[in-house]
Amino acid sequence: MSAAAQLSPPFPPSSVAIALTPAASVRFDDVSVTYPGGTHALEGMSIEVRKGEFVSLVGPSGCGKSTMLRLVAGFEAPTSGRVSTGGEALGYVFQDATLLPWQSVQRNVELPAELAKLPQDVRVERAASAIRRVGLAGFERHRPAQLSGGMRMRVSIARALTMQPKIFLFDEPFGALDEITRERLNEELLACFVADPFAGLFVTHSVPESVFLSTRILVLSPRPGRIAFDIDVPFAYPRAPELRYTSEFAAIAGRVSEALRAVSQGERG
């Protein structure tokens, strides 16, 4: 598989003001990851995601998408190369909501601030505003088991919001939700992004989701993961739900699908 094949965008790059913010937030410099067993997860990965950019990572299973997030979070270290975050506050939304079932929604959302030993009043205030932001006001005293899957994911997002992340990592957070819930959460997530822009890295298997959310979509090749296609998404924010039904949207989704098919074919050959 050759180096990144750049597909030219059909529109000029988006003129979103927030995308012009200079500070580079996440940088991968020629990053490779090889596991002790010899599994080659990533190779020669170099990307930069700035504040105000929302980058989706798509590709076949096991292509190292999640590994990229784990590198940024510091859960794993690269075998070679360098991953830098500039020490910015991180938010991470996991595949499962990873809530503590014995704690209320309120206490779950307070957790990061509690672990950081922030004062009680700051903790409560930040949790309250995050819970309002994800539309769960009134559910503070509920326990996770009393909530639907979508609501649990909202709690998980609220929990990440309390630390006011400048870098936001998403590991296929909405994969287990039904289509309608997923679309609504996509819209709410974008509202958060527009209100307080961060550098976003979003792993997903859903093509429409990646197009709707992102400024840029990276299609990774099968193991070892490399950038096979780099597709710009030129739509301005805020994005209306109806964007999904425009022909421009369909055109980009088509290109992402095509790219995915191309890398999967490589896998079989």
Binding site: R70, A73, G74, F75, L90, Y92, F94, Q95, D96, T98, L100, L111, P112, L115, A116, M163
Partner: peptide, 11 residues
């Protein structure tokens, strides 16, 4: 995943 969460926030 819950361990990762606690690692992320420096527990």
């Amino acid at each position: 995943g819950q361990h990762d969460l606690f690692t992320l926030y420096g527990a």
